[in-house]
Write a protein that binds this DNA or RNA. Structure first.
Lengths: 207, 207
DNA sequence: GTCTATAGTGGGATAGAC
DNA sequence: GTCTATCCCACTATAGAC
């Protein structure tokens, strides 16, 4: 309590373990990562993590849960920052794309290690993923209703939007050719093109 | 020799092992799959695979190499079946999308287990992946040159095209809501929209 | 070319001192 | 809350019979 000042910059052991596990899971996969790998990256003994997490799977669950919660909150907020469906999709896409680029290490764990979760934990995470889909779906449906978007199948369009964003975390590297901002902006432009947005579709309008 | 008739339908042990390993790697990941898993799925003893493959990694390499070679050959052929860049991209996208949907189990291994290969084997596979990128790149560049396509950055557009196709193998399931044909056709439409193709852009032209 | 038996290694998790 | 020591199990790959 006395130590929980706002200026506290020191990382706790628990935070170091979470960070170490995230980077290890992203690099080696959940099954390819040993508890010894995690401990080494956190600078601790091989068994120190058991004080903070019941098992290796609980550690993955903690990472996965927090990752999904924060992503969902971020795109819900982004969705509220626009008025028209075009504005809202642009805002959500920019946030979704930036999240997958900027936090690509965390995103790889969140998106590709899901199947290592227990059925119960997977179920909880699946609900959050459903919430993410709902954000896209409500915007695309609204855009179709107003005639701003030209989409045959709303479900399939939403799969494509999620898909293109998720895959950024597979290929993006922060030391690569493009900045997170460039990738996010390009993803937004693609998203608007995919739904056939008329008018101010970012660089898609450039002629 | 005498048994190698054209009508030979019986699968060889080697083929059964490859098929068993593919399904196991797709489901459990390379590191999550044990040689016992593979043997059980192939209906053989735990050590039978060592007669046909030097190690578990060699088995992954064989799957990965053949998978990439066939995909590259398929899209090269598809590319030759059109004249204009729009036709060629439509044809390639249909083939690329269908491959990732139809062969989603094989495609998951091919796309997501690359890092389990030895550096040498990874290098060989990376060359094939570069060849796949080249097919997309030459078409998109040609479309920009003729003015059929409206693209800011050819490289980034090609990443998006590959990305959207690869991710199909992550989410597609053959017992799901959509057929492989529907998914492939939708991917083609999205591809043409992403490059800003004018004119006959499949359902994108529907008004 | 397939089997059984097994060598040799390494990982997840616990016990108990400090 | 962190350590060292360790249990027990599982895995890859080899040996050698048939």
């Amino acid at each position: 309590m006395a130590r929980a000042t706002a200026a506290e910059a020191t990382t706790t052991s628990s935070e170091r373990i979470l960070a170490a596990a995230t980077s290890a899971f992203a690099e080696l996969g959940f099954r390819g990562t040993t508890t010894r790998d995690i401990a080494a990256r956190a600078g601790m003994s091989p068994t120190a993590m058991y004080v903070h997490h019941r098992s290796k799977e609980e550690l993955l669950y903690a990472i996965s849960l927090v990752g999904h919660q924060r992503l969902l909150a971020a795109i819900q907020e982004a969705s509220a920052q626009g008025v028209t469906p075009t504005q809202r999709l642009g805002s959500v896409a920019l946030t979704f794309g930036a999240w997958h680029a900027e936090r690509n290490v965390q995103a790889r764990v969140v998106n590709y290690e899901l199947l290592a979760l227990t059925p119960e934990h997977y179920g909880e995470v699946a609900q959050l993923r459903h919430g993410i889909d709902t954000v896209f779906r409500s915007i695309v449906a609204a855009g179709v209703a107003t005639g701003e978007f030209d989409v045959d199948d709303v479900s399939m369009a939403c799969v494509s939007l999620a898909s293109l964003g998720v895959d950024i975390s597979r290929w993006f590297r922060s030391d690569g050719e493009w900045s997170t901002e460039q990738v996010a902006a390009h993803y937004r432009d693609n998203a608007l093109r995919i739904v056939g947005a008329r008018g101010q579709a970012g660089s898609a309008a450039r002629e």
